[in-house]
Design a protein around this nucleic acid. Structure first.
Lengths: 256, 256
DNA sequence: AAGGTAAACTGGACTATACCAGATGGAATT
DNA sequence: AATTCCATCTGGTATAGTCCAGTTTACCTT
C-alpha cells in the first residue's frame, strides 16, 4: 500500500453497493473514516476534488457530505473545509459537576467564555417558569463553551436575583452551580430536564460559527431548591454531533 | 381577509428581512404556520408552485423547506408533499408507563406494530451490555410505533430469555414493560438512558418511510433489575420532530 | 524574522435544467 | 359500487454552470 505515487483513495474506482450516487459516496467516505485513513480533525478533500475524483456533480458530492454531517461523522468550518468529528462528550445533566470538570475528566480541553451577564426584565415565557410577574428583574447570563477549541454549546441562564444577589459580580467562567452553592448556599434538590433535537438559528448559529439551520440539541434544565423555588433556568443549545446525554435513574418503588 | 379571488399568500410580494433568499422564504412560510394560515397536517403549496410564486429557483425553495424541516415545523411525505408538523409528544423514559398510555394521555392516537420477534445469537456489542458471551441467545424484538397515523419511532429491544422465558409468545403490541412485570414479575430498579441526535438510516429509514439521513433522536434505555442484571436493552430511533424527552430527577443529598 | 498583501482555494448561495418513480385522483371498465 | 388503469402531480436525484465572501497560503517587503 504505497502512499507515494499511488492514486489517493478518493480517485480510486470502487464497486457500487448503492443505486444512489450520494449514498455510495457517503459510504465510501465513511469507510475511510472507519478505517482510520481519515483521522479525527483531518480535513477531507475539497468538494471540487471529490467532484472530479469521483465523477459526480458538486451538488451530489455535497449531498453525500450532508449525510455524513447528519450522522455526526464530519462537520464543516465555513469556507475552510470539511473535517472529521471528534468523539462526542458524555453529559449527565443530573450531576452537579460542571462542564469544565466533566470535559476534563474525559481527557478533553474545555473552555468557557461569558458572552454577557445582565439584569433584565423577565420576558413572558421565562417569568412563568420562575413564577414571577413579567418584567421582574432576573439575571440573564449567556455563555459559549468549547471543547478542544471547537465551539459546541451556547447557553442562556436565568437566575432569580433574590436567591443570589450580586451573582453577576462573580466570575462565571467556571461552574455556575458551584458559585451558587459556595457563595450563596443555594443547591438544587430537583432537576427537570427537557431535550429536543432542534435547528441552530440566528444568534446561536453565529456564536457557534455554524450555519443557520444546522442540527442541534436543545437541553433545558430547570433546577429547584428544596422549597420548590426555581434556582436556575438553563437553556442549552448543543451542536448535535458534540454530545451524548446520559442519565442514570433509580426507579421509585411502586405504590409509595 | 377574502380568500376568493385574492392572491394566495405565497404569491404576494413581501418586504425582505433577510439578505439570503432561502432564509427569507423560510421566515415567510414559518409566519404562515405561526399565524395559523397553515394548520397542523395541512399540505404546503408544491415546490413548483412556491418556485414561481416567489420567483426563486426550485433548489432555493427546497433549501428553505429543509430549514423548516430541521426546525421541526414541517415534514415530508415522499412524493406527496410537505406538511405542517403536529406538536411533539412528551416522553419520560424514566416512567414505566408505556407508549400507548402516555400518547393517549396527551390526546393522541398511538399504534404499535410488532415487525419481528425472534431468538437471535447476541451480536458482539449487545453481548457486552448483557454480560454474556457473544452468540448467547437473546430475544430480539423490533417494533414500529405511530402517532395519529404517522410513524414516529422504530425500536429494537433485546431481552435476556433467562429472565422472561417464552416472552416472544405474548402479544407485544402493548407495553413490554407491563408484560415483563405482570407475566414474569420482572421490573426495573434502575434505568440508564443515553440520548443522541442521529441520522435515520437504512432499514430504520425505510420502516419510518423517511429519507435516509433524516434527522432523528436515538434514545437507548438499559434497565436493570434490583440484582443489577440487564432486564431490557431498548434502542429507540425517533423522528426528530416527534418528541421532547423530559425527565424529572431528585438530586441525591450531598456527601453520603 | 516579522509583517503585509495578493492570489488561490474553499464552501455558500443561486440558477436552470432534465429525468425518474412513487403518490394521487379521475375516468373508464367491470 | 368496486376495480382497474392512466395521466398528472409531487418530491427525489443528478448535472453544469455562475458568482460571492471568507480562509488560507505563498510570496514579497521590510
Amino acid at each position: 500500500m504505497g502512499t507515494s505515487g499511488a492514486k489517493p483513495w478518493w480517485r480510486e474506482s470502487a464497486p457500487a453497493h448503492n443505486q444512489l450516487q450520494y449514498l455510495e459516496l457517503r459510504d465510501r467516505i465513511a469507510a475511510q473514516i472507519q478505517a482510520g485513513v481519515l483521522g479525527v480533525g483531518d480535513r477531507l478533500p475539497s468538494e471540487r476534488q471529490l467532484e472530479d475524483g469521483l465523477g459526480s456533480a458538486r451538488g451530489t458530492v455535497r449531498e453525500a457530505l450532508f449525510q455524513l454531517e447528519a450522522e455526526g461523522l464530519i462537520y464543516r468550518r465555513d469556507r475552510s473545509g470539511w473535517y472529521v468529528c471528534p468523539a462526542p462528550i458524555l453529559y449527565d445533566p443530573t450531576r452537579s459537576e460542571g462542564f469544565m470538570a466533566y470535559v476534563t475528566a474525559q481527557g478533553r480541553r474545555p473552555e468557557t467564555e461569558t458572552l454577557s451577564k445582565r439584569l433584565v426584565p423577565a420576558p413572558d415565557a421565562v417569568a412563568g417558569i420562575f413564577g414571577v410577574a413579567e418584567g421582574t428583574p432576573l439575571y440573564d447570563i449567556r455563555r459559549l463553551r468549547s471543547i478542544d477549541g471547537r465551539s459546541v454549546l451556547v447557553e442562556r441562564i436565568h437566575v432569580n436575583p433574590d436567591l443570589a444577589p450580586g451573582l453577576i459580580d462573580h466570575s462565571l467562567d467556571g461552574s455556575l452551580t458551584a458559585v451558587l452553592k459556595n457563595a450563596y448556599g443555594v443547591a438544587a434538590a430537583r432537576n427537570r430536564i427537557a431535550m429536543k433535537p432542534c435547528a441552530i438559528l440566528g444568534d446561536d448559529a453565529e456564536t457557534l460559527r455554524a450555519r443557520s439551520g444546522s442540527p442541534g440539541l436543545s437541553v433545558i434544565r430547570t433546577s429547584f431548591d428544596p422549597a420548590g423555588r426555581v434556582v436556575e433556568y438553563d437553556q442549552e443549545c448543543w451542536r448535535h454531533d458534540a454530545v451524548i446525554v446520559s442519565v442514570d435513574i433509580r426507579v421509585a418503588p411502586p405504590g409509595h
